[in-house]
Computed example of a mutant assay.
Amino acid sequence: MAEPAPQLSKAANKRGVARLAAVQALYQMDLTSARLMDVVAEFENFRLGKEVDPGESPEIYREADPQWFRAVLSGVLAEQRQIDPVIAKNLPPDWPLARIETLLRAVLRAGAWELIARKDVPAKVVINEYVDVARAFFEEDEHKLVNGVLDRIARTSRDELLAEPVSGSPQDGE
């Protein structure tokens, strides 16, 4: 009999789940105009690490780093007026920010905030994480747009210049 796979609970994995949840929360807030504290309470009380569908075979949301979730969410909201022009400047010329789908905008905002405000996290890690978030939600080439935009933002907002555009899976350690 095979043993169940061990639940990954490294800080890096918890941050990845927090990033995904933050994007979901930003999307929810954009659609419903819900208040920050209400959304944080909902996610922390009913989603992060909780059962999705109690029953015979309940699914459970993976555990997230709640401080990282709150930091990304509140950071994007506090800095959105500064982040949006940075994103817009790095989008293809024929794609104004208003044309970007709401969920994709949330991914770009969260990734841009982390690149600009959290220089303690390697740019490659941030970009890879948000490319993975985009892949989780979209079936087309949206992840390529996320990769390109965040890569350009990293090159202009970080002292460290990336040698090449990032793609693939997150680096260990974040």
Rank of each mutant, 00 (worst) to 15 (best):
A2S: 10
A2I: 07
P4H: 04
P4N: 01
P6E: 15
Q7S: 10
L8W: 09
K10E: 13
K10L: 10
A11L: 14
A12V: 01
A12Y: 03
N13Y: 09
N13Q: 12
N13T: 15
K14V: 02
R15E: 00
R19S: 07
R19G: 10
L20Y: 11
L20C: 03
A21R: 08
A22I: 06
L26F: 01
Y27E: 13
Q28G: 07
D30T: 13
L31N: 10
T32L: 07
M37Q: 15
V40C: 08
V40I: 15
V40N: 01
A41N: 09
E42H: 14
F43K: 03
N45D: 12
N45E: 14
L48M: 15
L48D: 08
G55C: 05
S57R: 14
S57H: 14
S57C: 02
S57M: 13
E59T: 06
Y61V: 06
R62T: 07
R62C: 04
E63N: 05
E63H: 06
E63V: 09
A64Q: 09
A64G: 06
P66I: 02
Q67W: 08
R70G: 00
A71F: 06
A71T: 13
G75H: 02
G75T: 08
V76M: 04
A78P: 01
A78G: 09
E79S: 10
Q80H: 11
Q82G: 03
D84V: 12
D84E: 14
P85C: 02
P85L: 03
V86N: 01
V86Q: 05
K89N: 10
K89M: 10
K89F: 04
N90P: 02
L91H: 00
L91G: 07
P92M: 13
P92N: 07
D94E: 15
W95M: 15
P96D: 09
P96V: 04
A98G: 03
I100M: 14
E101H: 10
L104P: 01
L104A: 09
R105W: 06
R105P: 03
A106D: 04
A106F: 00
A106E: 00
V107I: 12
V107Y: 06
L108T: 08
R109L: 08
A112G: 10
A112R: 04
W113V: 02
E114L: 06
L115T: 06
I116V: 09
I116T: 11
I116Q: 07
A117G: 00
A117F: 00
A117P: 01
R118M: 08
D120Y: 04
V121H: 03
V121N: 04
A123S: 09
K124N: 08
K124S: 14
I127K: 02
N128L: 08
N128A: 13
N128H: 11
Y130W: 08
Y130A: 07
Y130Q: 00
V131P: 01
V131H: 02
D132T: 12
F138G: 06
E140K: 10
D141P: 01
D141W: 04
E142R: 15
E142Q: 15
L145Y: 06
L145G: 09
G148S: 12
V149D: 03
L150I: 00
R152I: 05
A154L: 00
R155Q: 15
R155Y: 02
R155S: 05
T156Q: 13
S157M: 11
R158F: 03
E160K: 15
L161F: 10
E164I: 08
E164Y: 12
P165A: 05
S167I: 05
S169H: 11
E174T: 11
